[in-house]
Structures are given as structure tokens and as C-alpha cells.
């Protein structure tokens, strides 16, 4: 069991959170959608596993490299 942190590739806002902690995810599943410069940026699961933690809420501002979610495989 390893923990995988998913970091933001951009600075922006959290627009929608689609999955919550406890959800089973497959690599590529969209966990949340960020908004930056009027663009929607999906945040995807980096591996199969269980979504252990979602670290942000809708409307939160996030910075580049900030941890958005943690997956345990």
C-alpha cells in the first residue's frame, strides 16, 4: 500500500469536486476540475486505488504543485 499525492499542475480555483474520499478510482478517472484562465483543467487519478483524501473544496484557490488529493493503491 503506497500513497500517491496528486499535485496541481497550475494555479487556479477548484471548480468542481467529482469524487469524495473512500471512492475506488482507476487511473485516468477525473477527481476534480480546476479552473484557470477561463479554462477547465481536469485532475485525474494517477493510478488505480482508493481515494484516501480530497484536500480541497470547490472555490478554493490552489497553487502550482499544491497537493489536491491522495490515492492509496
Amino acid at each position: 500500500m503506497a500513497k500517491h499525492e496528486i499535485e496541481s499542475e497550475v494555479s487556479g480555483n477548484v471548480w468542481k469536486v467529482l469524487l469524495s474520499a473512500g471512492a475506488n478510482v482507476s487511473e485516468g478517472d477525473v477527481i476534480m476540475i480546476l479552473e484557470s484562465m477561463k479554462m477547465e483543467i481536469p485532475v485525474e487519478a494517477s493510478c488505480d486505488g482508493v481515494l484516501q483524501q480530497v484536500c480541497v473544496q470547490p472555490e478554493d484557490q490552489v497553487e502550482e504543485d499544491q497537493v489536491l488529493a491522495v490515492i492509496e493503491d
Binding site: 499542475e9 497550475v10 484557470s36 484562465m37
Partner: peptide, 12 residues
């Protein structure tokens, strides 16, 4: 545009 043309991600 302020963006990475490869990844299509905006750049701030």
C-alpha cells in the same frame, strides 16, 4: 497566450 503549447495548460 500565456500557456504551454505542448500540455495546453495555462501558465501564470
Amino acid at each position: 497566450y500565456a500557456e504551454d503549447s505542448e500540455s495546453m495548460l495555462p501558465s501564470t
